Computed example of a mutant assay.
Amino acid sequence: MFNAENKALVLAAYCSGLAAMAHLGCIIFGGDWYRFFGAGEQMATLAEQGHWYPSAVTSVIVVVLSIWTLYGLSAAKVIRQLPLIRLALIVISSIYLIRGVGFIWLMPMFPGNSLTFWLVSSGICLTIGLLYAVGTLQMWPRLNV
């Protein structure tokens, strides 16, 4: 394996990378994948119709999750340190944690998503957010500003 200084951040980065790949799979494989992952019938139907919207939104998510993967690996000292590492880790941890606990307020904005989607995805986000937060706290003194 590789030399990492923080297992929590490596696991968080791994999870972010898996999430990015799952979203990329939705773009590549279309409506059935959007349905399987609970994105809602409207997104699935638009994807099947070849509409640009599902791919555009999902592409942004893929890019963001990929960047978060790199920041997790950077903070764990697997790759070179990226700029604004402390700020990035605070933002990444916060977004995951807020998404994990704030789904109740998000649900009305996305009525096409199933309750199963909200519970599973929120649990995943909460777990990843905790991994980023714990790893960040552990590595904080060794991260350059």
Rank of each mutant, 00 (worst) to 15 (best):
F2E: 11
A4G: 08
A4I: 00
A4N: 12
E5P: 00
A8V: 01
A8S: 11
L9G: 06
A13H: 03
Y14K: 01
C15W: 03
C15Q: 09
S16Y: 04
A19V: 07
L24T: 04
L24H: 02
G25K: 04
D32Y: 02
Y34E: 06
F36M: 08
F37S: 06
G38P: 00
G38D: 04
G40C: 09
E41T: 13
E41C: 02
T45L: 11
L46Y: 07
E48V: 00
H51M: 07
W52Y: 12
Y53I: 10
A56D: 02
T58W: 06
S59G: 15
I61T: 15
V63M: 09
V63R: 02
V64P: 01
L65K: 07
W68E: 12
T69N: 04
L70T: 01
L70G: 03
Y71M: 03
Y71F: 15
G72N: 08
A76R: 03
A76Y: 04
A76E: 04
I79G: 06
R80E: 14
R80H: 11
R80K: 14
P83K: 05
P83A: 08
P83Q: 08
I85W: 01
R86Y: 02
R86S: 03
V91M: 12
S94P: 03
S94Y: 00
Y96Q: 05
L97F: 12
I98L: 15
I98Q: 10
R99E: 10
G100L: 09
G100S: 10
G102N: 11
G102A: 13
L106I: 00
M107I: 06
M109R: 13
F110M: 13
F110Y: 15
F110T: 03
N113R: 15
S114G: 08
T116H: 11
F117H: 15
W118E: 12
V120S: 09
V120K: 09
S122L: 10
G123H: 12
T127K: 00
G129M: 06
L131H: 08
L131R: 08
Y132G: 04
A133G: 08
A133L: 15
A133Y: 07
V134L: 12
G135L: 06
G135C: 06
T136K: 00
L137I: 11
P141R: 05
V145G: 01
V145L: 10
V145T: 07
